[in-house]
């Protein structure tokens, strides 16, 4: 089963507070997708809507053409993991895994136990008494072993130490290649995990501001460095995300593909053209107050 998630003018508000507005777009296919954005930008609300925990205030959210809220068929196709220690009551880790095994049609219990061992997760400990990092490990295990056609992971790295995080990334990639499916990960650690994303969806101030393949995004963002007047002449009609001035030197982060003509021009002005790290691109795209017009 390949999944298509479609947003049509989706909005969600909590009373007077608007969490999401004018959300439009589609994500489709068996891909690892990064859901990026600042805290409070609406990422978790978007995921909770996809899982069918919340109801849209207006607009539509369709998964393979169906609304997920109270949808019996979709309920077991979508696995959403997030920090949820408090909801497990008196469950031990072993019981939490057993509950998951009874819930997810594609659950692989052998793999879950293998992961528990790799993450050194104590099976007989109560979920409530796990450290934040251990809880994240449990969530990562459930998300991966569920093999759900649509798996949503909300910052499933909180409190994990670096070795555990890299173990998670490694397992995520391996398991995705074994069982291709749609995996949506919300994260702030773009530098660590960005290379695993085929596509990124950027949420800012309650709406999706960008949806692009990671490669395309890397290609269409670059920084020009040179003397201030030259850089200004070069970027005159381009969309600039960020500028920095040092003495008479200036650097400008440009959003938009570099054409052959521009390349020639840069050569002419003796401008240095450099790639921009994904993390920086995301920061530049979400730190401004409004979209600068070209």
């Amino acid at each position: 089963m390949s999944v298509t998630v479609e947003w049509k003018g989706l909005a969600k508000s909590y009373g007077a507070h608007s969490a999401l507005t004018h959300v439009n777009g589609t994500i489709a296919g068996n891909k690892i997708i990064g859901l990026l954005g600042r805290n409070g930008s609406g990422k978790t609300t978007l995921l909770a809507l996809i899982k069918g925990l919340l109801r849209p205030t207006s607009g539509q959210l369709l998964i393979n053409g169906q609304a997920p809220f109270e949808n019996r068929a979709l309920a077991r196709e979508i696995c959403f993991v997030r920090d949820s220690r408090m909801t497990y009551g008196s469950f031990k880790v072993r019981e939490a895994l057993k509950l998951a095994s009874a819930s997810w049609p594609n659950w692989d219990h052998g793999y879950a136990l293998h992961l528990a061992e790799r993450f050194s997760l104590p099976l007989e400990k109560k979920v409530q008494s796990l450290s934040l990092g251990m809880e994240s490990s449990l969530n990562a295990i459930i998300g991966l072993a569920s093999r759900a056609p649509l798996t949503l992971m909300d910052e499933t790295y909180n409190g994990m130490d670096a070795p555990s995080r890299y173990l998670f990334y490694e397992e995520l990639l391996e398991d995705y290649m074994r069982s291709p499916r749609m995996l949506v990960l919300s994260t702030h650690l773009i530098e660590e995990v960005g290379r695993l994303f085929e596509e990124v969806v950027l949420v800012d101030q309650g709406t999706i501001v960008l949806h692009e393949t990671t490669e395309q995004l890397l290609m269409m963002t670059y920084v020009v460095i040179g003397t201030a007047p030259d850089v200004e002449r070069f970027t005159d009609s381009l969309q600039v995300l960020h500028t920095q001035v040092l003495g008479n030197m200036k650097s400008a982060v440009v959003f938009g593909e570099l054409s052959k003509e521009q390349e020639r021009l840069a050569d002419l002005y003796h401008l240095d053209i450099q790639p921009v790290p994904l993390q920086d691109i995301i920061v530049h795209l979400t730190s401004r107050k409004e979209v600068p017009s070209s």
């Binding site: 891909k31 690892i32 990334y169 490694e170 990639l173 391996e174 290649m177 290379r195 695993l196 994303f197 085929e198 990671t214 490669e215």
Partner: peptide
């Protein structure tokens, strides 16, 4: 592509490209 992806820890679609 999968071996490459695994070795360099990158998305297999990227390798394929």
């Amino acid at each position: 592509t999968n071996q490459y992806a695994s070795f360099y820890q990158i998305n297999p679609a990227t390798t394929a490209k």
